[in-house]
Amino acid sequence: MTTNTLHSSRFSQLYINRLGLWLFILSESVIFVALLFTRFYLLGVERAPEINQTIGLIITGLLLVSSLTAYRAEVHIAQGNRKAFMNNILATILLGIVFLIGVGIEWSEAFDHFPPGTLFGTVFFTMTGMHAFHVLTGLLLLGLLYLRGTQGAYSKNDYWGAEATIKYWHFVDIVWVFFYPALYLLS
């Protein structure tokens, strides 16, 4: 029995793909857990009183809505409904872009109140910067997904690329679920 035959008898390719993606997500999460621990080590439970709570709440809401549209996209492609899939991916991309604009606005205010040279500024810009970078890479992947979708890729029987990208997007959302209270709400 060859190695390939052994693998196909016990694990489907899709299962192996999913397991690999989860391991990738686990390895990525180590970075963010380290950043969270660093935040508590350096600042305790203190935060800057000048932080813009309104923007924090709005961009958190945007990311949550984008997770719903990403989820809906996956459900639609699993049913073979390409048009709804594309619409939801497009909505997710737009929400992600607005999220990044919100982070940009927050950064422009943060430079005035707690610049990167201060302790809270260092923590804030590192955490939000690392997260925003992952949002950006997620947006690039979603853009690629949309582009390939327009070219006829993905069907109800073959949508692993879409599933993986959407799972990555949810991961970016989970990171923010922990970063939002750590940066904006703790006191």
Partner: peptide, 9 residues
């Protein structure tokens, strides 16, 4: 986080 991992992912 658990809700997202369980139901979205």
């Amino acid at each position: 986080g658990w809700l997202i991992i369980s139901y979205f992912m």
